[in-house]
Structures are given as C-alpha cells and as structure tokens.
Amino acid sequence: MKVVLVLLLVAVATWMLRVALIAVVPPERLPEWVRTRLGDVAPAAFAAMIAVHLGNSAAVAPAPTLVAGGAAALAGWRTRNPIVTVTVGLATFVLVDLLAVAT
C-alpha cells in the first residue's frame, strides 16, 4: 500500500509541475534562449528512450535491435527525414528478425 501511495504522490507532483509550466508561465515570459531550445526537448527525449532500449535489449537479442538501430541512424544522418529514418529502422528490424528466425 505504501508503494501505491508513493507512486500516486509522485504522479500528482509531476502532473502539477507540468501544469504549472504550461498554464501559469506564458510562453512570452520565457527567455528567448529557452524558447529556442524547447524544440530540441522532444527529439532528445525520444533518442534517450531509444538508447535505453538498445542498451537493455543488447544482452537479449543483439542482432535485430542493434542492426536496425544502426540502419536507422545511418538513414537519419543521410536523409534528415524522420519518416525515412523510422521506415528504414522498422524494415531492417523486421528483415533481420525474420532472417534470424529462419536460420
């Protein structure tokens, strides 16, 4: 029961922080350097989640995940297009996974 209470309290606290930053602080009041860097937050968070997944899954099934991550990184670097990056990564993962199962 204590764990559930702690989880609920942490959830409420993080929700309150988000609401405070969104509802209370208008974007016009933020410094220009903060507003320009806010566009980098979502891609950085997404990249961090992917990096954690790649690191955790490397011990379990290194081939499909790491090969697909490398192919997606290469496609993203060359094209600078997120749709191409995700498509190449997903297609590579499925292909390598199917080849691994077939052998």
Rank of each mutant, 00 (worst) to 15 (best):
K2L: 01
V3S: 10
V4R: 01
L5W: 03
V6W: 10
V6E: 10
L8N: 01
L8Y: 07
L8R: 11
L9E: 14
L9S: 05
V10Q: 11
V10S: 06
A11F: 10
A13T: 09
W15L: 06
M16N: 02
M16H: 00
L17H: 02
L17T: 04
R18D: 00
I22G: 00
A23L: 01
P27W: 01
P27Y: 13
E28C: 03
E28N: 07
R29W: 10
L30N: 01
L30H: 08
P31C: 06
P31I: 00
E32S: 13
E32A: 15
W33P: 11
W33D: 14
W33A: 15
W33H: 15
V34D: 13
V34L: 15
R35K: 12
T36I: 06
T36C: 15
T36N: 07
R37G: 07
L38P: 05
L38F: 03
V41M: 14
A42S: 10
P43H: 14
A45F: 00
F46V: 12
A47H: 03
A47N: 08
A48W: 08
A48S: 10
A48E: 09
I50H: 02
A51Q: 06
A51R: 09
V52F: 00
H53N: 10
H53S: 07
H53P: 02
L54S: 01
L54C: 09
N56V: 15
S57A: 08
S57W: 10
S57Y: 04
A58H: 05
A58Q: 07
V60A: 12
A61F: 03
A63V: 12
P64G: 05
P64S: 09
P64R: 13
T65H: 08
T65C: 15
L66K: 02
L66I: 12
V67S: 02
A68Y: 01
G69S: 13
G69I: 02
G69M: 05
G70F: 06
G70R: 13
A72L: 14
A73D: 06
A75W: 03
A75V: 09
G76P: 09
G76E: 13
R78E: 05
T79G: 11
R80I: 06
N81Y: 12
P82T: 11
I83G: 11
V84S: 14
V84T: 12
V84K: 04
T85Y: 14
T85P: 14
T85H: 14
T85L: 14
T87D: 04
V88I: 10
V88L: 07
G89F: 05
L90D: 00
A91F: 12
A91C: 14
A91I: 10
T92N: 15
T92K: 02
F93A: 06
V94C: 05
L95V: 14
V96N: 03
V96G: 00
D97E: 14
D97M: 09
L99H: 01
L99K: 13
L99G: 08
L99R: 11
A100F: 04
V101Y: 11
V101L: 07
A102Y: 02
A102H: 11
A102G: 08
